[in-house]
């Protein structure tokens, strides 16, 4: 298949953290609009993959290649990857005192598009998306993630996803630490993203609940830094029943 049709192509990717190799040769192709799920036990390298794809300097890519829309992005800085249309929803979103959520999203959009953001239009859209995510509108003016509950932080990530409309987003354990209602709300937000755009998703999780109402194209299992199985959505149920033991954990 022509690589140009592939949005993200990962080949023989190895990566380490503090000199210890965590990823031992990952191969993965994601096409526009596809939703992939990455599951695996704790410490398998799920979050490492997300961080390496986004260029977090703490994680070091030691080999292999990452092509985004056919272009090599290995070594490229995080902001440039974001400008290409990549996005990472953080497992633990950072708090930034003195920077309001709406001002942050506005700056990010301006940076991403290179154009000034239309104030009224932006506000209308922001309020719409916040309503969808059952977020109190007052959160828009609050300092970014400061004093947000675990659930509100994750909603703030999905809000950014919906506003930024990336071509490819990694959702790193967006469901972790959330109660049932919050998982449902966040999941609705993700579904809205799937429907509104042709953005592709890589959902990192070890909980099937968030996936219930989402359409999933492919599922991958990562164990000890290697993809050990790939399949369709039915793989999720299998893991739900039997855990990761069958995959050599």
């Amino acid at each position: 298949m022509d690589t140009k049709e592939i949005l993200l192509s990962i080949r023989d990717l190895t990566a380490s953290v503090e000199e210890e190799e965590i990823l031992h040769g990952i191969n993965l192709d994601i096409r526009p609009g596809e939703t992939h799920v990455l599951m695996g036990p704790n410490g398998a390298g799920k979050s490492t993959l997300g961080n390496v794809l986004m260029g977090n300097p703490v994680y070091k890519q030691t080999g292999g290649s990452i092509l985004f829309e056919g272009e090599e992005i290995t070594g490229e800085s995080t902001d440039k990857r974001a400008k290409r249309g990549m996005f990472l929803s953080f497992q633990n979103p950072l708090e930034v005192p003195g920077l309001s959520l709406d001002a942050f999203i506005r700056s990010a959009l301006r940076e991403r598009t290179g154009k000034p953001v239309k104030f009224m239009q932006f506000n209308r859209e922001l309020m719409e998306k916040m309503k969808l995510l059952s977020m109190d509108p007052s959160y828009a003016e609050r300092d970014l993630n400061v004093g947000f509950s675990g659930g509100e932080k994750k909603k703030s990530e999905i809000l950014q996803l919906l506003m930024m409309k990336p071509k490819f987003a990694i959702l790193d354990e967006t469901d972790s630490g959330l109660d049932v209602d919050a998982v449902k709300t966040v999941s609705e937000g993700i579904r809205a993203f799937q429907q509104e755009s042709d953005g592709a998703l890589l959902i990192i999780t070890h909980n099937a609940n968030i996936l219930k109402s989402l359409s999933v194209d492919k599922t991958h299992v990562i164990v000890k830094g290697k993809l050990v199985a790939s399949g369709d959505a039915s793989l999720i149920d299998e893991i739900g029943k039997n855990g990761f033991e069958a995959f050599g954990e």
């Binding site: 986004m54 977090n56 300097p57 703490v58 800085s77 995080t78 902001d79 990857r81 974001a82 400008k83 996005f87 990472l88 953080f90 979103p93 950072l94 930034v96 005192p97 003195g98 920077l99 942050f104 999203i105 700056s107 990010a108 940076e111 991403r112 300092d143 950014q160 930024m164």
Partner: peptide, 23 residues
Amino acid sequence: FYLMSRGLPEAEARAMIVSGFAN
């Protein structure tokens, strides 16, 4: 890294954190 992951260049990201600190 968090701010850069949304497309803000490093210098801009740092300036935003400092401005926030002085807010």
